[in-house]
Amino acid sequence: MIIGTAKESYRADEALLTTQPQRVWMAIFLAALVALPFALNDYWLYLACLVAINVTAATGLNILTGFTGLVSLGHAAFMAVGAYTVAWAETRLGTPFFINLIAGGLVAAAFGILVGLPSLRVKGLYLAIATIAASFILHFCFIHFDGITGGATGINVPPLSIFGIELATYFRLYWVIMPITAVMVLGAANLFRTRIGRAFIAIRDRDISAEVLGIPLLRYKLMSFSIASFYAGMAGGLWAYFFRVVTPESFPLLTSIFLLAAIIVGGMGAIIGGIAGAIFMTLAPELLRFGMEWISPLVPNAGALLSPVRTVVFGALIVGFLIFEPQGLAEIIQRIRRYFRLWPFRT
């Protein structure tokens, strides 16, 4: 049981992790991330990398939708922009990995600002639909600007290499993808310790009164769009190195819905929500696969049923969380924390 935490300076109170148990848990978590690749087989390492990529993308969307209140159903298109930028730079310019990745993020951010412009005029659902429209238009561009994008066949990306070391196995890729994800998440958490993050939340909660406090709405809305797209672009760039091919069909509308579902399930407006949601939603289909394999002796065509069952469960998770746990997994995690804080005096 924790009664209270004494702090001696404002700096300590403004820290990211304010209690001892928080720091301990974080240390354990980071140690687990380091130990993970030595314990997992190739298949689970593949999933771990995919989870990390999705965490980056979902965290970006969470900044835009969860914290700033601007709903985007076009997030996958920004991932695609990042992926194409990386693939193009890698194959045409041959520039180093890190520059390509940052360029992917920046180009996506530029597109984000462009797509965010309607947010000046429209809000809520109208904006969500404008982002769908933008993603369809981008999809068209990916197919038809084939000089850059390689048209319908897309671009093949050579294996990632850093300082001449080729990183083609999941084990090696993990050591690139996971640290980048960690930095991106930390950056997002830092953002909300400063005036910029606060301004985003202010815009979400009451955008008119935000203006009176000296927050220029358009600039901050566009900033949120560009940050979210930067995250998506980085995630898309990692995706390109991970799957080694980028085509117009790599990032369908369904991916945008998946990411939005991830932050709904995880918890909008909480950094941990983006993480938990992306982990959960990426792994849930795999768990279903094990479930279906397990019941396959009883159900004759279980294998064929897997895809529709996944579709149903995906929808049911969105509906279920929105109705029964609108704050998402983040709230469940909070509840567990509160329980243990009073443990064993309250049961």
């Binding site: 579709t311 149903v312 929808g315 969105i318 929105l322």
Partner: peptide
């Protein structure tokens, strides 16, 4: 937006059911 997303989820459920 939440209600909209509920209908998106419902849509996914209906598609899955139809495929099943």
């Amino acid at each position: 937006i939440s209600v909209f997303m509920v209908t998106v989820g419902l849509g996914s459920i209906l598609v899955g059911m139809a495929e099943l």
